[in-house]
């Protein structure tokens, strides 16, 4: 029995591979472009798909790329030929660029159910989850975690932090914007002071977090929600996020329908579903972010223990788009020596 099962799985996999791109144009199909960790077996994707398909008698089709940045690039590459009805997984740093492609349609929705720190209004993009960036530390090694960015910058170089590269990753850019929010014109100098404490700069969050959990560094740039994963999935409170007095920079993840998707009635239906409890319930313990809308039940109490920033930083998408290059250059200058 076991071997037959194995063989049929093998066969199914083979069929799945060779027919990957055979059929697209089925009626009653909604195509959503998103990033890989969303559609992963253990991510929110499969549950979202099941919940949505239950009500609509339709097929929800995910096409996943590496991350939010790759998502936008994929759209730029495809242009008007894109098959996407809905794009899910951009963040607020990317929305200006995304709008400039002219590929997105207005949502026309009432966003009053949305509750993100600092509020959010946009005629095109709809938030579905958020979290603040935070320095996550190993409580077994860091007995007195920094209480502010200023303390982190001024700390001795004994304890190291891994950060991500702003040229290739969203959290990396997040930290650049965070530093800019706190220090403004002095950001470059502060970066230079932080430099000796930076163990290394990785291309993405995955590599940084691996180095951190391998014990290579005492701290890592991640999210306020990271400890929730370890507490719930691993039952460990070893990894904690540090609260910074100055405040934390916010990441909001958004979705939007495309011009192509405007003609598909399922697009609007999905966006409405996305802000409803049916979708929002899935987010916290699958995407490890805070839900942007109402959930049907209170969150796991663990989420109450997460850092609650006294102040939220967020540049407008237009400011980010206008200054990103200059600010990254400043970062590179400060660390490149």
């Amino acid at each position: 029995m076991r071997s037959r099962n194995w063989r049929s799985r093998l066969l199914l996999s083979a069929i799945a591979f060779f027919s990957s791109f055979a059929s697209f144009a089925q009626a009653e199909t909604l195509t959503i472009y998103t990033y890989e960790s969303f559609t992963a077996e253990w991510g929110p994707g499969p549950k979202v798909k099941a919940a949505f398909e239950k009500d609509c008698a339709c097929t929800l089709d995910f096409v996943a790329v590496t991350d939010g940045v790759a998502l936008l690039n994929r759209l730029k590459l495809e242009g008007k030929d894109s098959k996407a009805d809905v794009v899910l997984g951009l963040d607020t740093n990317l929305t200006e660029d995304a709008k400039a492609t002219g590929l997105f349609a207005r949502h026309g929705m009432d966003l009053s159910v949305i509750n993100v720190p600092g509020g959010f209004t946009d005629d095109t993009f709809v938030p579905y989850d958020f979290a603040h960036f935070a320095v996550v530390y190993d409580s077994e090694k860091v007995k007195t975690p920094p209480k502010s960015m200023a303390e982190l910058v001024a700390a001795s170089a004994d304890q190291k932090i891994v950060i991500e590269d702003p040229r290739t990753s969203t959290p990396g850019l997040g930290l650049v914007l965070w530093m800019k929010s706190i220090y403004g014109d002095k950001a470059g100098e502060e970066w230079a002071k932080l430099a000796p404490k930076i163990l290394t700069v990785t291309p993405g969050w995955s590599e940084a977090y691996s180095l951190f959990t391998k014990g290579e560094a005492e701290m890592v740039l991640s999210y306020t929600t990271s400890p929730a994963y370890h507490m719930i999935a691993e039952n460990s409170s070893r990894y904690q996020a540090a609260t910074f007095e100055e405040g934390h920079y916010l990441q909001i993840e958004v979705a939007a329908k495309t011009l192509e998707g405007r003609d598909n009635p399922l697009s609007d239906k999905f966006l409405a579903f996305m802000v409803s409890p049916a979708f929002q319930d899935i987010i916290p313990e699958n995407n490890w972010m805070f839900p942007a809308g109402k959930t049907s039940a209170p969150l796991n109490p663990v989420f109450d223990k997460m850092v609650k920033p006294s102040k939220t930083f967020l540049y407008s998408a237009a400011e980010v788009a206008a200054n990103r290059k200059a600010w990254i250059d400043e970062w590179q200058q400060a660390l490149g020596k």
Partner: peptide
């Protein structure tokens, strides 16, 4: 990947 992860920074 080696350059970025082990390189230590944008230098």
């Amino acid at each position: 990947t080696i350059i970025l992860v082990l390189g230590g920074g944008p230098a």
